[in-house]
Design a binder for these strands. Structure first.
Lengths: 264, 264
DNA sequence: TAGTGGTCTAGACCACGGA
DNA sequence: CCGTGGTCTAGACCACTAA
């Protein structure tokens, strides 16, 4: 049932010239373990193997392909990486349930909102942390904070305002060069020698303050889309806080979710 | 430099009773390959190995631990899975650059916005696709569409309205049972026998229509947070479209990003 | 007890990279 | 040329699961 026509002799791949130069994927595409993975993936996506169903055992697959166990395991490893299957020790491999519960938004520094944005630095200030700021950054009230505000704008005009707060570090001046990075974590990564491990963020609709509306040249009554982001190091210490508020008529956040999600 | 104290004799793990029953992670925690991975991960997170730096070669690691090559490879595989390193054939393994450019929002059916929400079905209708709907769903204008609208509400009152559209399929009646799933993809997955492979979504601030404001009992002038989602099968055919608009004062979207991201 | 997956070994050959 | 990672073999022993 599982292996109708799949007993082809994959093994003569050794005698073929398959490493077509630069493209690594093309090379991988013709390996035995990759073929095993593709065959099984095919059966999952076409419904021949349904979610929850058990796959044939490693040894059955090995026998079917005339191949060693480790090779089969490598193929199954690919499917595990890609989220198609999971294993239960002592029982077997099972087809995973598809789910779309992880929405992924990609934000590179280059194209924050799916469009190329120019950056203007409005001002850089030194200030003492008030209660709210101290709370966000996990520092004591009164602690010296570096604040910067910048504007992202497209050809149509200003798109978003971004206020960023970093605990001041002695002997680590912010360089002009660093400020050019559109995406806050990139600044932090260059500015501190800490490894930024995690960021928590939230997204919501917000009314624009008068100052924000002015700076964004926003029509009266327009609300903004607000993205807050707090950065942490590996120990959970806060490294920075960013609050971006943008014209909702000039950008939207977008992304995708995949049922069988591999690595990010 | 790389291996100061790490030449412990891991190999006697074989003679210890390490498989402490149910927890699989605890078992894995004491394997050789896992220890190798942890040691290297430690060096990366503490800065002993910096992004872009080359790791010692497989054979060096194997010699340092007194272990076979395949075992080392398995350990390095863990780090690749978790995004800490990558490999360049013919050269070596390298520490990856940390980046926080993938924001992940988890939405389970249980807690859509970080709070338990009750669901009320407002109505289910059959209608013919107009141009906009036909475009969204990738069907012909006039095609029969199943529409349903539901309200999500917390103890405080209504939180969001969700309009969902599914191309009508003969002989596949929507079951009352299926409608209880809060999260749209879950309904689709149960309703059709198609595998939902991908969903594209977008998030933005939107003014509430009069009908929406009434249904949500929203204060005058309040804008909503709108999440649109289109579901696709493996071939790229659209399986459904959902447009959720919610009171921005009663929920926010939130999530996290990780510098070294493993599987979703 | 038999079958499953999980770990590990000590070899092998291959393609790629750089000196 | 040699060192690198990538693939593969034919075994081994272990712990878990279910009959």
């Amino acid at each position: 049932m599982f292996f109708g026509l799949c007993k082809k002799i994959y093994r003569n791949y050794k005698f073929m010239n398959l490493y077509w130069g630069d493209l690594r994927l093309k090379a991988r595409a013709k390996t035995i373990y990759y073929q095993i993975a593709e065959d099984l993936k095919q059966q999952i996506m076409t419904g021949a193997l349904t979610p929850g169903e058990m796959l044939p055992s490693q040894s059955q697959i090995a026998a079917a392909y005339g191949v060693a166990l480790m090779t089969v395991r490598q193929g199954l490893g690919v499917l595990i990486d890609e989220g198609y299957i999971y294993s239960v020790p002592g029982k077997g491999y099972f087809v995973a349930e598809p789910n779309l519960d992880k929405l992924v938004i990609k934000v590179s520094g280059e194209s924050f909102f799916g469009q190329k944005l120019n950056i203007t630095m409005n001002h850089v200030d030194i200030l003492a942390a008030d209660r709210k700021l101290a709370n966000k950054l996990g520092v004591a009230v009164g602690k010296t904070i570096l604040q910067m505000q910048l504007t992202l704008h497209s050809a149509a005009g200003p798109v978003a305002l971004d206020d960023r707060y970093v605990p001041y570090r002695k002997g680590e001046p912010l360089l002009e060069k660093e400020l050019q990075y559109a995406y806050f974590p990139h600044i932090i990564a260059r500015h501190t020698n800490m490894v930024v491990a995690r960021s928590d963020f939230s997204v919501n609709a917000m009314p624009l303050s008068q100052a924000e509306a002015d700076a964004l040249q926003a029509p009266a009554g327009l609300w903004g889309l607000c993205i807050e982001q707090v950065l942490y190091d590996i120990s959970g210490n806060s490294l920075g806080w960013s609050r971006l508020v943008g014209r909702s008529d000039r950008y939207t956040l977008s992304g995708a979710a995949h049922s069988y999600a591999g690595r990010l």
